[in-house]
């Protein structure tokens, strides 16, 4: 039997690939990295590119495109944590600024302090309504 290693390719939104592989090629941030079984433990970031997996039972390589992420090599297990979105420092920064500005915009026209009494009153009213509906149902049956 060929020497193989288990490989998992997962993203936050779905599991992409799981199986035994003889050899994989990963587009690491410092250049392409080929990994055979029994590789030393390693962590590296991945840049957008194609992930090539040579599976044990199939002569052809499986190609998976990933938009970045992390590669972790453990003894007997390789994990590719793929990103679901194209990431970059500037891109992330722009998103953060957008989220911040939207919140600031929405906060403009109101008083500054948190009114706990109002918040709790509002919530207990809502809870009371739901409970009243439930009680009404129970008494009818």
């Amino acid at each position: 039997m060929a020497n193989t290693v288990h490989i998992d390719v997962v993203s936050a939104e779905a599991s992409i690939f799981a199986g035994e592989a003889e050899f994989i090629v990963v587009p690491a941030s410092a250049g392409e990295v080929g990994i055979f079984p029994n590789h030393a433990p390693m962590v590296t970031s991945i840049k957008p590119g194609a992930l090539r997996i040579k599976t044990a039972d199939n002569a052809e390589e499986t190609l998976i495109f990933i938009s970045g992420g992390l590669l972790e090599v453990q003894p007997g297990l390789i994990t590719v944590l793929a990103d679901t979105a194209v990431r970059g420092h500037d891109l992330d920064e722009a998103k953060a600024i957008m989220a911040k500005e939207a919140a600031e915009e929405a906060m403009k026209n109101r008083n500054s302090d948190m009114d706990y009494a109002k918040a709790q009153a509002e919530l207990s009213e809502a809870v009371a309504q739901i409970q009243a509906i439930e009680r009404l149902r129970k008494t009818k049956h």
Partner: peptide, 25 residues
Amino acid sequence: NRVGANVKSHIIGLGDVPHLESLIG
């Protein structure tokens, strides 16, 4: 917002399928 909490950031309108991309910011 209504009760006056200090809201630093927000995201609304995620739809039925959550995407990590829209949460990053």
